[in-house]
Structures are given as C-alpha cells and as structure tokens.
C-alpha cells in the first residue's frame, strides 16, 4: 500500500511545482517583456559602411536610422564615390553621381515580393539579395565600370565568383560549417 502511495504523492508534487513555476513566470514565453536598449550593429547592403563611410564614423553610421542617413551621410558618400572613381560620369544602370549616392545613402535592402530577388542580375536591380549573388562584382561594376560596365576592367571583378561551398535548394539553404 505504502509503495503505491509514495510514487503518486511524488507525481503530485512534481506537477504542482510545474504549475507553480508556470504561474510565476510567463506562461508560454521566456522573453516576453524583455527590452534590448543598446544599439549594436546595423546592416542592409553589403560593404556600404566599410567602403563609403569614413572609419571615424562607422559606429555613428550603425546608430543612425536609415530614414536619417541621407541628410547626414549623403555628401560624404558622394565624395567617396568620386574619390574611388574620379572619372565617374554615370554607371551601367544610368545613375549620375548624385543619383547613385542618393540611392546608396539610405541603407536599406529593397526586396520585391512579386518577382525574382537579386542584388543585380543585369536586368533586375536591387530586388533582394541571394546567397550566391556576387555583390562585390556588382558594386564595383557600378562604381568603376562606367556607362556600360566595361571601363576599368581590372577593378570591376575580384574574380572570386562563387562561395567556397555550394548552397542548398532546401531550407536553410546555407552550407554546413567548416
């Protein structure tokens, strides 16, 4: 009799403890109400902070909301574009220095919900970013490649055209770690 009684008491005690714990904290979620107050890093387009923003202002750029970036960093980005390529007139997608700097200076990634996503595939411009997109070549072609992308051929491709591991067509798409 006793042998049966004790285990059932134990089960009761465990279940009461579990209920008690649930009632004391959030019933379903351990993070509800938690606040993260200190801004860390901020990224949209690859390389923008590093290539176009002076190193003294990298932290400031990370802490500036995208909607405020153009007024704070627009001139600096245009000046850096013309420093990188003093002969810049327009680029392959037809943007003048002002237009290109204007597009860059609000650092968000534009993403299409209705069509193919790509950083730049020759037809679609900035409709997303795929894992395999060669964003370095895309960026440098638009910076150095001139009106048809063929100027400064030594500077428009780093000739690293793909990742060191293949991507998967199945979620989560990225390759296993080394």
């Amino acid at each position: 009799m006793k042998k049966i009684f004790y285990p059932s008491l134990l089960i009761m005690a465990v279940s009461v403890t579990a209920c008690h714990k649930d009632n004391n904290s959030t019933p379903t979620d351990p993070n509800t109400g938690v606040t993260f107050a200190v801004q860390g890093d901020q990224v949209a387009r690859p390389g923008l902070n590093i290539v176009f923003i002076s190193s003294a202002e990298h932290d400031k750029f990370n802490q500036t909301e995208p909607s405020q970036m153009a007024s704070i960093f627009g001139t600096e980005i245009k000046n850096k574009l013309l420093a990188l390529n003093p002969n810049y007139t327009t680029n392959k997608i037809g943007l003048t220095a002002d237009q290109f700097a204007g597009a860059l200076s609000t650092d968000v990634l534009n993403v299409s919900l209705t069509g193919p996503t790509t950083f730049y595939d020759g037809t679609h411009v900035l409709t997303g970013r795929n894992l395999a997109d060669d964003v370095i070549d895309d960026n440098f072609t638009l910076i150095f490649g001139g009106i048809d992308g063929t100027s400064n051929p030594g500077l428009t491709s780093d000739h690293v055209d793909k990742n060191d591991k293949d991507f998967s067509n199945s979620f989560p798409y990225e390759a296993s770690p080394w």
Binding site: G40, D41, N49, N62, L109, V111, G128, L131, N169
Partner: peptide, 22 residues
C-alpha cells in the same frame, strides 16, 4: 566594421533576403 561591435556578439556580417527556392 566598427569599433563598438568588432569581435563582439553584436557584430553582423551580412543580411540576405530572397524568395524561397522551395
């Protein structure tokens, strides 16, 4: 990219957003 985040758990390397291949 920046002194305040370099080498820390807050340091982002990249953002990708794309239509699902699946």
């Amino acid at each position: 990219d920046a002194p305040a985040v370099s080498g820390k758990t807050t340091d982002i390397t990249d953002l990708y957003v794309f239509q699902s291949p699946e």
